[in-house]
Computed example of a mutant assay.
Amino acid sequence: MKIGILGLGLIGGSLGYDLRSQGHYVLGVSRRDSTCQRAIALGSIDEASCNLSLLAAADIVFICTPIGLIVPQFKQLINHLSAATIVTDVGSVKAPIVKALAPLWENFVGGHPMAGTTDSGIEAAQRNLFVGRPYVLTPDATTPTTAIAILEEIVRSLGANIYYCQPEQHDRAVSWISHLPVMVSGSLIAACMGETDPQVLQLAKNLASTGFRDTSRVGGGNPELGVMMAQYNRQALLRSLQQYRHNLDEFINLIEQENWAALEQKFQSNQKVRPEFVE
């Protein structure tokens, strides 16, 4: 099968590695010729161009651009495709994308692989990135079952675990476990930098270890991605942030009141439920 990838960054490049290993012929499109050439040299794709017309030969196309470019790039892309071509995306927000694109293309299936790193670009792409990771598909009632089945087969070949849900359900869920952590992690870094004593601040930097590294990782990642999360999943993210602020206020009140027993109960409850999310 010929598979097109529009956007040769971390996700697009990683898809290319794995799809080629499955025997597919991979066509890649990027805005920069240097990225195209690098992707070929690395072995991520078979053929590349800055021209969308290259994807006319694809049986299925993965749109792997930043969220804000998915809709405008899609509208240009469909001028080059046959009606039978299946198109999917990998955006971390689904409702606005599906709402915009599903009416324009019968064989569109919204998607979101829950995999990645804080690094970006074709150099960050890696093999087997999706193995054991969730991959969400958000078809609607009018999506052809054949398109869903073909995409599902490809996703399963990546070693990913498939989940189906409505776009709005996806956005509410990821606001809790993906987008909120980015904002919380970012605010942690900003709060630390608010230390006014330069000696104390430098000491904190010197002492920072695994706890700070783990909790600050996503907040110190790609700034563009963080803004896109907030911009395109604004309503769900605000709801999550407000709930988080409420819980943070509860912790503040317990510490102010020196209510150590209640604080311990909070931590015990957290210890109990955390494995339901990460194990």
Rank of each mutant, 00 (worst) to 15 (best):
H112G: 02
E224Y: 12
A57H: 04
L158M: 11
I70Q: 12
I5K: 01
A115H: 03
N233S: 10
A84S: 09
N206G: 08
G226T: 00
Q76K: 06
M229C: 09
D140G: 12
V155C: 05
A190M: 14
S216M: 10
Y164N: 07
C50T: 12
L69K: 06
V184E: 11
S187W: 08
H112E: 00
L81Q: 00
Q242L: 13
P96G: 12
G13P: 01
A230F: 02
G7Q: 10
L180M: 00
A261T: 13
T210V: 09
R274H: 00
P96S: 13
G211M: 02
F212A: 06
P66D: 05
Q235H: 11
G28Q: 01
F74C: 02
E279T: 13
E256P: 07
S187E: 10
P66Q: 06
L225G: 12
T196Q: 13
K266T: 14
I162G: 03
G220K: 00
D140V: 05
Q265C: 13
K94T: 01
M1G: 01
A208E: 10
A48W: 07
T143H: 09
A56G: 06
R245Y: 13
K205P: 09
G12V: 12
L42G: 07
L238G: 11
S187V: 06
Q126H: 08
R127N: 13
S34A: 03
N107R: 07
K75Y: 05
S34H: 04
T215W: 11
S14V: 01
F108G: 05
R217I: 08
L201W: 08
L254V: 02
D171G: 08
A208Q: 04
L42R: 05
L203Q: 08
G132Y: 06
H179P: 11
R245V: 11
P181I: 08
G43P: 08
L238V: 12
K94C: 01
A191R: 02
A58L: 08
F251L: 15
R274S: 01
R38L: 07
A190K: 14
F277W: 11
P113G: 03
L137E: 04
T145R: 13
I63Q: 05
G43S: 14
P72Y: 00
P96Q: 15
P223C: 01
E250F: 08
S178G: 07
G110I: 00
T145I: 15
G68W: 05
Y135P: 10
A100Y: 11
Y163H: 09
H24G: 03
Q243K: 15
V87A: 07
A56W: 09
M193Y: 14
T138R: 00
L15Y: 07
G211S: 02
E195Q: 15
L10E: 05
T146I: 14
R217Q: 03
Q235F: 15
E276N: 03
I5D: 00
V136K: 14
K205E: 14
N51F: 09
S216V: 03
N206S: 11
K205V: 09
G9C: 02
L203G: 04
S216K: 05
Q169N: 12
I177V: 02
P134H: 04
M1D: 03
S209H: 04
Q37F: 14
M114I: 15
V136Y: 14
Q73D: 12
T145N: 15
A84H: 10
P103M: 04
S82D: 08
L225Q: 13
Q271S: 04
Q257S: 01
L237Q: 00
N51Y: 06
G116K: 03
A41M: 09
I60M: 04
R245G: 08
